[in-house]
Simulated assay, not measured.
Amino acid sequence: MEFEDRLSALATKVHNQAAAIGTEEATKNAFVMPFISTILGYDVFDPLEVVPEFTADVGIKKGEKIDYAIMRDGEVQILIECKASTGSPKIEHASQLFRYFSTTNARIAALTNGVIWQFYTDLDAPNRMDAKPFLVLDLLDIDETLIPEVKKLSKETFDLESIISAAEELKYVGALKRAIGGQFRDPSDDWIKFFATKVYEGSYTQRVREQFTSLVTKASRQFLTESVNDRLKTALGAGAGIRPIDEGTSSVTSEQVAQDDLDRDTEIETTLEEIEGYQIVKAIACGEIKPVRVTHRDAKSYFAVLLDDNNRKPIARLHFNSKQKYLGLLDEAKVETRHPISSLDEIYLHADSIRGAVIRYR
Rank of each mutant, 00 (worst) to 15 (best):
Asp261Glu: 14
Val76Phe: 03
Pro133Met: 06
Asp122Ser: 10
Phe119Ala: 08
Val150Tyr: 04
Gln77Pro: 05
Ala18Met: 05
Ile268Cys: 09
Arg207Trp: 00
Ile80Val: 15
Ala179Phe: 11
Arg207Thr: 10
Arg312Met: 11
Leu135Gln: 04
Asp260Thr: 11
Ile242Val: 15
Thr213Glu: 00
Ala175Thr: 10
Ser251Trp: 09
Phe31Asn: 04
Ala56Ile: 00
Asn311Val: 15
Gly248Lys: 08
Asp73His: 08
Val14Arg: 07
Ile280Gly: 00
Phe35Glu: 02
Ser220Ala: 12
Gly59Pro: 06
Lys90Val: 12
Gln206Glu: 14
Asp5Gly: 13
Ala196Gly: 09
Pro148Arg: 06
Thr38Ala: 10
Lys90Met: 09
Ile284Leu: 09
Ile164Lys: 12
Ile280His: 02
Leu140Asn: 14
Ala179His: 13
Ser227Pro: 01
Leu153Tyr: 05
Lys290Pro: 03
Ala11His: 07
Glu276Asn: 12
Ala166Leu: 05
Pro34Lys: 08
Lys218Met: 06
Gln17Tyr: 11
Val51Cys: 01
Phe212Lys: 00
Glu64Cys: 12
Ser342Cys: 08
Arg178Ser: 10
Gly181Ile: 10
Glu75Leu: 10
Asn321Gly: 11
Asp186Tyr: 13
Asp190Ala: 13
His296Arg: 14
Ala30Trp: 03
Leu215Trp: 00
His93Met: 09
Glu226Lys: 11
Arg99Val: 00
Asp352Trp: 07
Asp122Val: 02
Asn229Lys: 09
Val252Met: 12
Ala69Cys: 08
